[in-house]
Design a protein around this nucleic acid. Structure first.
Lengths: 317, 317
DNA sequence: CCGATCCGGCCACTTTCCGACCTGAATCCA
DNA sequence: TGGATTCAGGTCGGAAAGTGGCCGGATCGG
């Protein structure tokens, strides 16, 4: 019970939750003598976790940042917060860390007690999809199932709705999850069609691990990201929207400015350029800025804005 | 060096990164005999971390979810992803976990090696403020400084810009961080004015811990959240927007539906109700849904929509 | 059935751990 | 400046734990 290892973890935990513990208090909490505490601290230091100490009255120990991440000891709430945060990051809220987020999420979810997993799921309904215009929503539960299967080399079964609409049942050996411009793709060896395929995760239903493990095959070319990029040559072309605004670039609120590229044109005007997949996002900006403007292109965007404008006017009669 | 504790952590790490390790391989990696490995596994189980084992050919060990969170052993990338995810969650992207997120973020940041902290900061520019209509941006670096000072009972110095605009230097004993409807508040004992105050974090500059520790005073009433709510009686009242849409509730895309309350009225109509602080958000929804509608109230929203609509029409001539 | 794999008891040996005691050094405060 | 507080770490002897080797058993898949 009162194992040394367990005690060290508890000590690390205490040092992580509150700074500046006096040695006597730590020793009391751990139910050892102060001498042993000093030895424990020394051991932590030997392991590379720098424990800082202050002498004199009101001194104490504190954990500093070191060369490597120490084991994180989380309470229930913190674990839930981390899972929730990772899920939003994985769903594309933050550029460039989606894939790592999924990996970390998989790790956290796997070891998380079921009651906490339920709490995370309960918070799902409150999550906000930032980039809901960037791609269809992906069930983060499915995402972790896929990530886990990739990591653990477990065969996977799911239903897939092809672009044309027909539904098929698939059995695959998953290889990698790839996030590309707001969409998730699964690169896998289709065990029934005997070929490599990419699956859009949002078109994939009810994934379940069969528990059957397999040996990873070598992907032609080796790079899963490149593989996906090749396959989706018919990728959705984003529209380049350009608008001239009758307001100086500096007068655009900073919260708005970060969403697009604003170039000041002088004379109280600026140009807004954005790459978007749907036109709703730039409309939000135009509404929020509240200045007069002129749509430069493309024509479809002008049509869209005009239609919305006319609808708005009609809707307020 | 080859301490038992350290070895246990390494084992936990291995079990967290990959499922189904054969015992012989684990023993090899840890450089102990298989008998000792079995004992280590047993120890982990005694500590409450359920290590599952499969016998027979291709068997092995795997870490399952148990009653408590095991210590999380993260590699660099995962740690960065967690910090980034927590930061977006703390900035209000997800309702209801802001305060816990900050607590977890503080913990992670504090023990994170500096090089990783720099990577997290480098990703800052890419973060997306979801609720950019919910409140002014808050520097997450400042937020963690404040949270840490609250946790560790350290005196804090910062500059504060009052509502009227005058700038003052403050020295406080921080008590709690409170997140309320998209804004962060610091509840603290002002050491120079000898009274409790609440500070809006977005009006607060250059916070730095003095390193001087203090004994927490008792907050009158005890509840920091209630304290803040009392103080900001002049809180921004959210508007309740109501719109009747000429579309059945079921035909509203799910990504849009979660943003407001949609009630089907039958006959291909539905009612949308939203509580918002600015009117830009519902405008986005109206644009995205693309159906005819009628604004029921409040009148200011109708005016706002009409103004936007007229501007949109003018801007596409 | 067999072979692979995990399980855990037993034993002898080694290593580590622990508390007690002590000296030293840094820090703070009066 | 001097005393109180607190961390640092050496040494010692007994206690506790860890370790590897060996072995019979259980369980799984083919």
């Amino acid at each position: 019970m009162a194992n040394t290892s367990a005690r060290m973890l508890r000590l690390l935990n205490l040092l992580q939750t509150h700074r500046y513990w006096p040695g006597s208090e730590l020793a009391g909490k751990l139910e050892v003598s102060e001498r042993t505490l000093r030895r424990d601290v020394e051991r932590l230091r030997d392991l590379g976790y720098p424990v800082d100490a202050n002498r004199g009255v009101a001194g104490g120990y504190q954990l500093q940042s070191g060369a490597a991440m120490p084991p994180l000891l989380l309470d229930d709430e913190e674990a839930v917060a981390i899972a929730v945060g990772l899920r939003t990051a994985a769903s594309g809220a933050v550029d460039g860390v989606e894939e790592t987020s999924v990996r970390a999420l998989t790790k956290v979810i796997q070891v998380m007690p079921p009651r906490l997993r339920r709490r995370v799921d309960a918070l799902r309904s409150f999550t906000v999809r930032t980039a809901w215009n960037a791609g269809p929503a992906v069930d983060s539960g499915a995402l972790t199932v896929l990530a886990q299967a990739c990591r653990d080399d477990e065969r996977l079964r799911f239903t897939y709705t092809a672009r044309a609409g027909e539904r098929t049942e698939r059995l695959v050996e998953p290889h990698r999850l790839v996030s590309l411009s707001g969409r998730w793709y699964l690169v896998a060896w289709d065990a029934e069609r005997h070929d490599w395929r990419t699956f859009r995760v949002d078109r994939l239903g009810d994934p379940r691990s069969t528990g059957h493990r397999f040996r990873q095959r070598e992907l032609p070319g080796g790079d899963a990201g490149a593989f996906v990029r090749d396959r989706i040559s018919s990728a959705s072309q984003p529209h380049e929207v350009t608008v001239t605004l009758r307001v100086a670039a500096d007068d655009v609120p900073a919260e708005v400015r970060r969403w697009g590229e604003f170039t000041d044109l002088g004379g109280g005007s600026c140009r807004l350029a954005m790459k978007v997949e749907t036109f709703d996002w730039p409309i939000l900006l135009l509404a929020a800025i509240g200045a007069e403007f002129e749509v430069d292109g493309p024509p479809e965007f002008a049509d869209y804005v005009r239609a919305a404008g006319e609808r708005f006017v009609r809707g307020t009669r």
